[in-house]
């Protein structure tokens, strides 16, 4: 793979993570009380971590991500909300938004994997897709243990 396409691919991924940071920043702007802000800040920090991680990989010139996808708990596809959380958002609303966001990222990378011609780029997208599945899994598990405790 040539350096240019590697850089491009990672720039794209970093852009996605930056957008995620923005997503939480925007939600934080709507938040009305401390609990919401703290949860959003935690998730935003996670995304910032991803930005830093990908930036580091870009400068080292190698993608160091596991190709193994996480187990799909199957929540994302069933959760209803496509609507944006409001000022009264509770933990459920925030987690659903997060799960949905990770799902959208996963979907995007999946279509990029399908579209990629360069096998090396394809491999990177596959790894990025797996990474997003792990993020989604993280939120799904939180949802299972913290929200849908009784179901």
């Amino acid at each position: 793979m040539n350096t240019a396409s590697f850089q491009e691919t990672l720039d794209f991924a970093i852009g996605r993570e930056r957008a995620a940071v923005e997503f939480y920043r925007e939600l934080t702007g709507k938040a009305a009380f401390a609990a919401q802000k703290s949860a959003l800040a935690e998730f935003m920090a996670m995304e910032e971590g991803h930005v830093a991680m990908l930036t580091g990989m870009k400068s080292r010139g190698a993608v160091n991500l596991s190709p193994g996808a996480a187990v799909d708990l199957g929540l994302a596809r069933r959760l209803a909300a496509e609507e944006e959380p409001t000022a009264a958002m509770d933990f459920q609303d925030i987690l659903v938004a997060a799960i949905k966001k990770e799902e959208r990222s996963g979907d995007l990378y999946r279509s990029l994997v399908a579209a990629a011609l360069d096998p090396d780029v394809k491999a990177i997208f596959e790894r990025l897709e797996a990474e997003e599945s792990r993020h989604k899994r993280y939120f799904e598990e939180l949802y299972e243990t913290q929200v849908a405790r009784d179901n």
Partner: peptide, 21 residues
């Protein structure tokens, strides 16, 4: 399916650290 807290009465200025509600 589950219940959550009502935390809107705690303001940031109260200095109570809140993690995941």
């Amino acid at each position: 399916i589950g219940q959550g807290p009502e935390l809107s009465y705690i303001a940031e200025a109260d200095g109570v650290e809140i993690r995941r509600f």
